[in-house]
């Protein structure tokens, strides 16, 4: 268990599958806030980190620490007020399929398309020919055990299945980086646990990087190679913890990592004005 300082390049020492050369994503001294009627509300004070090709990185922090804001900025939906976000050598980020996004909201599937239609449409929208898109969509869905639901409409699916389809859509796009904003946040505990393990298995197989936002410590350890802890008001990177190889709760070091992260989060929540109850 090693806790490294919040410097971006410090994690470059740890061995990460597929990681070589310069980072795929660097977040440099990024500050983002919202302009509201009451005035400017800072969400992210100063965030600094980097993600390399193939690396699975978790943004962990209490509610309101700006982790979703940061993810939306990487996705290209928001622009930093200061600092830079560089992805694949570009810092003028627009939303695009090279950073496929899975949201927390259960209405992220297009309700007028079937399960297979949703995945195939995403592929067609990004340039795959119709027949190939359909075939690839079916393959990806079969991989996730959804082949029995291909022709159902989203409103006929449970919450867990909706999120599975959304994840299948993101993976089918074969992005450079997967962005996930608490995709299991709206699910019940059992479904959540099952989907976490499914995603962990998928993530191990993909060469894409993962940037995953959560406030669940176990989810973070299970899915991540590294956990970046955000905290403070306005927030910044508090710690950058290596959790690679800890996919199972009985793995050596899991309990220690959990204790360490819990300590960090607890101190954050004490410091914040609103208590956060998970």
């Amino acid at each position: 268990m090693q806790a490294v300082p919040p410097a971006a390049d410090a994690a470059a020492d740890s061995a990460v599958p597929g990681g070589a050369g310069r980072p795929l994503l660097t977040v440099e001294r990024v500050a983002i806030g919202y302009h509201q009627p009451q005035g400017y509300v800072p969400a992210v004070g100063e965030a600094d980190f980097a993600v390399r090709q193939g690396e699975k990185v978790i943004l962990l922090g209490p509610s309101g620490c700006g982790k979703s804001t940061l993810l939306k900025a990487v996705a290209g939906f928001l622009r930093p007020d200061s600092g830079r976000i560089v992805f694949d050598g570009r810092d003028d980020l627009e939303p695009g399929p090279d950073r496929a996004v899975v949201f927390q909201e259960l209405d992220q599937l297009l309700p007028w398309r079937t399960v297979v239609g949703n995945v195939a449409y995403a592929l067609r929208a990004t340039g795959t020919p119709r027949a190939a898109a359909r075939r690839q969509a079916e393959e990806q869905l079969a991989l996730m055990g959804l082949d029995h639901a291909l022709d159902r409409y989203p409103h006929q699916l449970s919450g867990g299945m909706k999120q599975r389809v959304a994840i299948a859509r993101a993976f089918a796009l074969a992005p450079r980086m997967l962005l996930m904003d608490e995709p299991f946040g709206a699910l019940d505990a059992q479904t959540r646990g099952r989907l976490q393990h499914e995603l962990a298995a998928l993530a191990r197989r993909t060469r894409a990087s993962l940037l995953f936002v959560t406030h669940s410590i176990d989810e973070a350890i299970l899915l991540g190679d590294r956990v970046i802890v955000l905290g403070g008001r306005p927030s910044g990177v508090r710690d950058d913890v290596d959790v690679s190889g800890l996919e199972q709760p009985d793995a050596e070091g899991f309990a220690e990592a959990r204790r360490h992260l819990r300590g960090l989060l607890a101190s954050e929540e004490e410091g914040s004005e609103h208590g956060v109850f998970d």
Binding site: F77, V101, F103, A122
Partner: peptide, 9 residues
């Protein structure tokens, strides 16, 4: 829904 569309480019 809009963000999904935009993120598909």
């Amino acid at each position: 829904t809009l963000m999904v569309g935009r993120s598909l480019g």
